[in-house]
Simulated scan of single mutants.
Amino acid sequence: MFAKKPTLHGDRVTLRPVGPDDVPGLIELTSDPEVGRLTGSHGAPNDAAAAQWYATRGDHADRLDLAICDAETGEYAGEIVINELDEDNLSCNLRIALVGSRAYGKGYGTEAIRLTIAHVFATTPLHRISLGVYAFNERAVHVYRKVGFVEEGRLRDALRWDGQWYDEIVMSVLRTD
């Protein structure tokens, strides 16, 4: 379904297929403790694994991995991914991560999500895009609602971080929304 990996252009961001040149940005992203907390990622970054990961994303027709780049400078600002494709139920998952404070508050995430949703619904038969976000990530919850995601429920105590439990909010957007 995602054999062709597009480049999508917005006012603030360009979304393009990830590749080996993006590995330093991915390492910056996965090394940031705040990004780790927001994504619930407990593991330590591994440079070799990051290089292998980004080198092989284009080989997978069941997912779409795009680098979020500043539209003016081309600088890597994060990634947005469509994965967990369920062709029988015409649904998939969306995840996004920005490199940290240098990318926050600039509208990159909002525009990247809008571009990606528009692309998915315009070029595939998919009906539903879902995601999970931890309840403490109020900035992300606000953005997801702004772009049309609707809260469906909560997974109670889904994340244990620094000895505390946090809920995961499940959200989705439908083609008919």
Rank of each mutant, 00 (worst) to 15 (best):
Q52S: 14
Q52C: 13
Q52P: 08
W53Y: 13
W53N: 11
W53L: 14
W53F: 15
W53G: 10
Y54T: 06
A55E: 15
R57D: 00
H60Y: 14
H60A: 15
A61E: 12
D62K: 05
D62P: 07
D62I: 04
L64A: 01
L64F: 00
L64Q: 03
L64K: 02
D65M: 00
L66K: 04
L66W: 05
L66V: 02
A67N: 02
A67I: 01
A67G: 03
A67W: 05
I68N: 10
C69N: 11
A71N: 11
E72N: 11
T73M: 12
T73C: 08
G74S: 05
G74W: 07
G74Y: 10
E75H: 09
E75L: 14
Y76T: 07
A77S: 10
A77Q: 09
G78T: 00
G78Q: 00
E79Y: 12
E79S: 15
E79V: 14
I80C: 12
V81S: 03
I82T: 03
I82L: 06
N83K: 08
N83V: 09
E84Y: 11
D86F: 06
D86N: 09
D86M: 05
D88L: 10
N89S: 01
L90V: 03
L90P: 07
S91I: 01
S91G: 13
C92S: 13
R95D: 08
I96L: 10
I96P: 02
I96S: 02
A97P: 07
A97S: 10
A97G: 07
A97W: 01
L98E: 12
L98R: 06
V99T: 06
G100R: 04
G100S: 13
G100I: 04
S101P: 14
S101F: 08
S101A: 15
S101Q: 15
R102H: 08
R102W: 03
A103C: 02
Y104W: 14
Y108I: 01
Y108T: 02
G109D: 07
T110V: 04
T110S: 13
E111K: 02
E111Q: 07
I113F: 09
L115T: 01
T116M: 13
T116E: 11
A118H: 08
A118D: 12
A118Q: 11
H119D: 15
V120G: 07
V120F: 06
A122C: 12
T123S: 15
T123M: 13
T123K: 12
T124Q: 06
T124M: 10
P125D: 15
L126Y: 11
H127Q: 10
I129Y: 04
S130N: 13
S130V: 14
L131C: 05
L131P: 00
L131T: 01
V133R: 00
V133T: 03
V133L: 02
Y134A: 14
A135E: 15
A135H: 15
N137G: 00
N137D: 00
N137Q: 00
E138L: 11
R139K: 10
R139N: 11
A140Y: 00
H142N: 14
H142P: 09
H142M: 12
V143I: 13
Y144A: 01
Y144S: 00
Y144V: 03
R145Y: 01
R145N: 05
R145T: 01
R145L: 01
K146F: 09
V147D: 06
V147F: 01
G148M: 10
G148K: 11
F149S: 05
F149I: 06
V150A: 13
V150I: 10
E151G: 06
E151I: 03
